[in-house]
Lab assay of single mutants.
Amino acid sequence: TEDARKEAKKIIDNGGSPDEAAKFIKKYGLSEDQARELVKRAL
């Protein structure tokens, strides 16, 4: 979702790792793979 993508970008912009961002956005109901893909797109 757009919200999850924004959250991921915010985490990374604040110095978080892509892994942290992926873990965080899994709470939106995404699978591990979906979360990682979304983080990649957010970069």
Rank of each mutant, 00 (worst) to 15 (best):
T1N: 13
T1K: 10
T1V: 14
E2M: 09
E2G: 08
E2R: 11
E2D: 10
E2I: 10
E2L: 10
D3P: 08
D3I: 14
D3E: 14
A4V: 08
A4Y: 09
A4W: 13
A4I: 13
A4F: 08
A4G: 04
R5D: 04
R5Q: 12
R5G: 08
K6R: 15
K6V: 11
K6D: 07
E7T: 08
A8L: 13
A8F: 09
A8W: 09
A8E: 02
A8I: 15
K9T: 05
K9G: 04
K9Q: 11
K9R: 13
K10Q: 10
K10L: 10
K10R: 14
K10A: 11
K10S: 09
I11W: 05
I12H: 03
I12F: 06
D13L: 11
D13T: 07
D13Q: 12
D13H: 09
N14Y: 06
N14D: 10
N14M: 12
G15H: 06
G15V: 02
G15W: 03
G16P: 01
G16Y: 08
G16M: 10
G16H: 07
S17C: 11
S17A: 05
S17W: 08
S17G: 05
S17E: 05
P18S: 06
P18F: 14
P18R: 05
P18I: 14
D19P: 00
D19E: 14
D19L: 07
E20Y: 09
E20T: 04
E20P: 03
E20K: 02
E20W: 11
A21M: 14
A21P: 00
A21I: 15
A22I: 15
K23E: 15
K23S: 13
K23W: 10
K23M: 10
F24N: 11
F24T: 14
F24C: 15
F24Q: 14
F24D: 10
F24A: 15
I25L: 15
I25K: 04
I25S: 01
I25V: 06
I25W: 05
I25D: 08
I25P: 05
I25T: 01
K26T: 15
K26L: 15
K27Y: 06
Y28F: 13
Y28I: 04
Y28A: 03
Y28W: 05
Y28E: 08
Y28H: 05
Y28C: 07
Y28N: 00
Y28L: 10
G29L: 02
G29V: 00
G29C: 11
G29W: 01
G29P: 02
L30K: 01
S31G: 05
E32Y: 09
E32L: 11
D33L: 08
D33V: 09
Q34G: 02
Q34V: 09
Q34Y: 06
A35Q: 01
A35W: 14
A35G: 01
A35V: 11
A35Y: 10
A35T: 05
A35P: 00
R36M: 12
R36H: 09
R36S: 07
R36L: 12
R36G: 04
E37M: 03
E37H: 04
E37P: 00
E37L: 05
E37V: 01
L38V: 14
L38C: 11
L38N: 00
V39S: 00
K40H: 14
K40W: 12
K40Y: 12
K40E: 14
R41H: 12
R41M: 14
R41G: 08
R41P: 02
R41S: 13
R41Q: 14
A42H: 04
A42P: 00
L43K: 03
L43S: 04
L43W: 06
L43T: 05
L43A: 06
L43R: 04
L43I: 13
